[in-house]
């Protein structure tokens, strides 16, 4: 763990990260020598037009993909040489994911979906169910523990996904277009909830989005174009 006294703790850092697809004339640079770091407690949006490399960057940060060259550090731990198994262990324990399509396991109830994340992170079994119920209660789903995803609205499903991402106390939560499948009112509530969690728990949130509502709430916006960071903007993030 990094703990530079006086300076904020770096949760995640990319150094010269490049990701290419194809070769020769068809070579595409999805990320091109990107160096960027994210500190503890950030509420940051990765912004840019389609094809700018937002998703690729999130994949690198979330350890779902590895760069062709360059470095990715999570909590000061270099990840380039880690095995698939070790990368999975870091994802399980330190990174939470929230997806555009909620991505809940359809055959599990809300509380079981949340519990799955704890189980995969090897959290102690004692109080595991209680922690899941608390997480669901915190996102306003105290009455819906035993409903399956198809018995929940889109907003409720995204709340379950937030509870699932946060229940293991991750260092970093990656939210890929989390409001894209929600109406504006529900989307705003979900964003407020995530902002609240960010402030209460100092969890780092990293968003990829086109949604102005998300941009308004961000305290930092990293603009990407053609796989490069073209602007890194700090804001007060009080919009909404």
């Amino acid at each position: 763990m990094a703990s530079n006294t006086g300076s904020p703790r770096i949760i995640c850092a990319l150094r010269g990260a490049t990701k290419t697809y194809g070769e020769g004339a068809t070579l595409v640079r999805a990320l091109d020598d990107v160096t960027v770091s994210f500190e503890a407690g950030e509420f940051t949006v990765i912004s840019g037009p389609s094809g700018s490399g937002k998703t690729t960057l999130l994949n690198m940060v979330g350890l779902l993909d590895v760069p062709t060259s360059g470095e990715v550090e999570i909590d000061s731990q270099h990840t380039e040489k880690l095995s698939s198994r070790n990368l999975a262990a870091i994802r399980a324990q330190r990174i939470g994911f929230i997806f555009q399509s909620f991505n809940l396991v359809p055959v599990l109830t809300a509380v079981e979906n949340v519990e799955l994340a704890l189980q995969l992170s090897d959290a102690p079994t004692a109080n595991r169910r209680k922690r899941c119920e608390d997480a669901l209660t915190a996102v306003g789903l105290g009455e819906h523990f035993h409903r399956r995803p198809n018995q929940l609205s889109g907003g409720q499903q995204q709340r379950v996904a937030i509870a699932r991402a946060l229940v293991k106390d991750p260092a970093l939560v990656i939210a890929d277009e989390p409001t894209a499948n929600l109406d504006s009112v529900t989307g705003a509530k979900i964003l407020d909830l995530m902002r609240q969690m960010n402030e209460e728990r100092q969890v780092t949130f990293l968003f990829s989005t086109h949604d102005p509502m998300v941009m308004d709430r961000a305290r930092r916006v990293v603009h990407l174009r053609d796989g490069k960071v073209v602007e890194d903007e700090r804001r007060n993030g009080d919009g909404g």
């Binding site: 198994r85 399980a92 799955l116 994340a117």
Partner: peptide, 10 residues
């Protein structure tokens, strides 16, 4: 994919 993202190994 979701399970892998949550940390399930291959």
């Amino acid at each position: 994919g979701t399970l892998r993202a949550l940390g399930l190994t291959r």
